[in-house]
Design a binder for these strands. Structure first.
Lengths: 337, 337
DNA sequence: TTGTAACAGTCAAAGGTTTTCCCTCCTTTT
DNA sequence: AAAAGGAGGGAAAACCTTTGACTGTTACAA
C-alpha cells in the first residue's frame, strides 16, 4: 500500500539504515550509493512517515501554539510571526484557541504534550498560578509571547508596557490635559492592571495630577467597548478631555462615539491608543498609537524557543523588545515639541 | 523516565491491552478493573503518547490547514471556524501559511501528508492544475474552503459569488449610476476574475450599460490598494460615480481617498464592498457590504471534512452557503425601495 | 448437566523509523 | 609487512501503542 523505507531499501539493494542515512543527510554514505537510493525514492515516491520518525527519534519537529483567539488581529499578527520563524527552522505549528479560558489552556497544554510537540509558544493575558505550575512541569520548553508571568520563571518576550504607557499618558499631559481617561480591556489581564494602569497612575502623580477613579474604565477590547466607555465617561460631571485607550478598537470606538456627538478629535478631545494595527491608518483622524510589535513578539518568541530546542546558550530568557510611538492625528502636534 | 502504558499495566496487574482499552473507552472492561487502572493512571500521571498511538492506529486526530495568510482577517476568521469545529470533533490543527504561492502550497501539502494528517482543509485563491492534481492524489480527504476548483472534483464550501456580486452591482445600478467602477483584488484569483468580474459585466449588460474597461481596476486587497484605485480612476476623463469594491479594505481606501478630496460618501459617490468584516462598522460612513460568512465557510468546511473522516454519507460535496447584503451608509437607501 | 454466548483479559505482532553497535574493507603510517 | 584508523554500511533493538487472535471464566438457557 504505502511505500516504506523498507521498500526503498529492497529496491536499492541496501539496508534500511542506509536509506535512513540518505534521507537524513547523514554523511556516511558513498555518493554513488546516495544517488542510487535517491533515485529509488524518486521512483517509488517514497515519503518518510513523520509519525514513525517521531516515535523513533522522540522529536516531532512540531511546536504547539496556544493563543486566545486567532480571529483577533492582535494574536493573528503574532501567530504569523511565530509561524514564519517556525517554518524557517523547519517546524510545523499546532495552533489552538484558548479563548483566554484557564481550563482550555490547561487541557490544550496537556493535549499538545500528549502529541509530543517539541516545544510550546503560549500567549495568555492571565497566567494563573495553576497554569504557571503546569507550564513549569512541562517536559518541553515553553515560551510566553506577549504575556506576563510575574515570577519570571518562564522565558518570555514582551515590550516595556509600563514605560510605553507612561510615555503615552505623558504626551497627553504635555498637551495640557488635566482630566485624562484610562480606558482598557478587562482588568483580569495582568498587563492592563499591573502595567498600563500603574503607569497611568504614576504618570499622573508625577505630574502632580490626581487620580480620579471615575476616569478609569474597563471594557472588552472592542469597538463597541470603546463606544460604551465614551458614554460612561461622558455622563459624569466633568468628562475627560483626553483618553488613553488600551487598544485600537477601543480608541476608534471612543472617537466615533465622540464624533457622533459633534465632538472633534483632536480639537476637542485627544486620544492615544496602544497597538498600532493597520486599523490605525484606516480611520479619520488617524490614530496616534503606541506601536506594539506583535509580529516581532511572535517571531522572537519562536526564535527563543528554537534556541532552547537546539540547546543553544541563551543570555537572557526574558526578552524586552523596543517599541515606539507612532504620531498621527488623534493627538495634536504640540507634544512633539 | 516517561511513564508508558506498560508501567501502568504492571502497576495495575493487567496487560497493556487492558490499559489501552480503558484509555480508549472500550466497553470490554470490568468496572472494577477499569477503576483500578484509572487510579494507577492518575497516580503515575500517565499521558498517552499520541505519536505511538498514531503509528499503531494510523490515525493522528490531526488535520492540516493551509491558508494564504493568517494575519489577514479574512483567513483568520475562517481559520477560527475551522478550529472550532475541529476541536468539537477532537481534532487538532496544523496550521501553515502559503502566501498564495504555488510552490509553498505544494510543499506544505507534502509536509502535512508526511505528518500523516487525517485530512486537510485548504484555502487557495488560485487552484492551479498542478495543485489540483496533487490534491486529487492525496491519500486523505481534502476540502476546499472558500476556494474555487472549477472542475468541482474536490469537495468545497463557498457562497454564490456571482449572484452576490450581481446583486451588489445591481443596487448601484438601481440607484441610477451609469459609471460604476469595479475594484478588485488580484485578477490571478479565480473568484475575482471568473465570478465577481463576470457578474459585474453581466449586471451592467442586463441593465443596458456599457462595460468600460477603464473602470475595471485590480489592486492588492488593501487599504492602500483602495487609495491607489481611487486615484487611478479619478484621473480618467469621466470618473465613476459608484464603486464595487472587492473587499472592505479596498472600499475604505476608496472612501478615504475620495473624502480627502472633498468628495462625500454616499452623497457624491456610493461604494459597496464585499466582505463585511468588523471593519465595516468601524468607519464613517459605515460600509454597505456583501456579508461573506467567513467563519461559517471555515466551520462548514471542517464539518464536511469530518464527514469524510467518519465515512458518513455526504449528499453534495460542493456546498453553497447563503449570503446577505448588509445595508449601511455607504450606499443610499433608495435601492432598498 | 451441558452447551453456548458473552465477557474479560492476555499475547504478541505490527506500525515505520532512528540509532547503536558492529563488521568489513581500504588507506595510511611506520 | 603489519598495525592502526576511517569510511561505508548492515543487523536489530527500541520507540509506545493498537489490535486481532485467542483463552479462560461465568451465567444462563435448554
Amino acid at each position: 500500500m504505502t511505500v516504506t523505507i523498507y521498500d526503498v531499501a529492497r529496491e536499492a539493494n541496501v539496508s534500511m539504515a542506509t536509506v535512513s542515512r540518505v534521507v537524513n543527510g547523514n554523511q556516511n554514505v558513498k555518493p554513488s550509493t546516495r544517488k542510487k537510493v535517491l533515485e529509488v525514492i524518486e521512483r517509488l515516491e517514497y515519503r518518510p512517515n513523520a509519525v514513525a520518525r517521531g516515535l523513533a527519534s522522540k522529536k516531532t519537529t512540531t511546536v504547539g501554539v496556544i493563543i486566545p483567539d486567532i480571529s483577533n488581529n492582535i494574536y493573528a499578527e503574532a501567530a504569523r510571526g511565530i509561524e514564519d520563524i517556525a517554518t524557517m527552522y523547519r517546524y510545523n505549528i499546532i495552533l489552538a484557541n484558548s479563548d483566554q479560558n484557564e481550563d482550555k489552556e490547561l487541557s490544550l497544554l496537556d493535549t499538545m504534550l500528549g502529541k509530543q510537540v517539541d516545544g510550546i509558544v503560549m500567549m495568555s493575558d492571565a497566567v494563573t498560578p495553576k497554569l504557571l505550575q503546569s507550564m513549569e512541569n512541562s517536559p518541553v520548553p515553553i515560551v510566553l509571547a506577549g504575556s506576563i508571568d510575574e515570577s519570571q520563571k518562564l522565558p518570555s518576550v514582551n515590550i516595556d508596557y509600563f514605560q510605553a504607557t507612561y510615555e503615552a499618558v505623558n504626551m497627553l499631559i504635555t498637551n495640557g490635559h488635566k482630566r485624562i481617561a484610562f480606558v482598557s480591556g478587562p482588568l483580569s489581564y495582568t498587563i492592563n492592571v499591573k502595567y498600563k494602569l500603574e503607569a497611568y497612575k504614576k504618570a499622573l502623580k508625577d505630574a502632580g495630577l490626581d487620580v480620579d477613579e471615575s476616569l478609569i474604565v474597563a471594557e472588552d477590547s472592542t469597538y463597541d467597548g470603546g463606544v460604551e466607555a465614551w458614554k460612561e465617561l461622558n455622563q459624569i460631571e466633568n468628562p475627560p478631555t483626553a483618553y488613553f485607550a488600551g487598544s485600537d478598537e477601543l480608541a476608534i470606538g471612543i472617537i466615533h462615539a465622540a464624533q457622533d456627538h459633534g465632538i472633534k478629535v483632536p480639537e476637542d478631545i485627544e486620544v492615544i491608543s496602544f497597538e498600532n494595527s493597520k486599523l490605525a491608518r484606516m480611520v479619520r483622524p488617524q490614530l496616534t498609537s503606541v506601536a506594539l510589535p506583535l509580529y516581532e513578539i511572535g517571531a522572537v518568541s519562536m526564535r527563543l524557543l528554537t534556541k532552547f530546542l537546539n540547546k543553544e546558550k541563551v543570555e537572557d530568557q526574558n526578552v524586552i523588545l523596543p517599541y515606539r510611538i507612532e504620531k498621527r492625528d488623534s493627538v495634536k502636534e504640540k507634544s512633539k515639541k
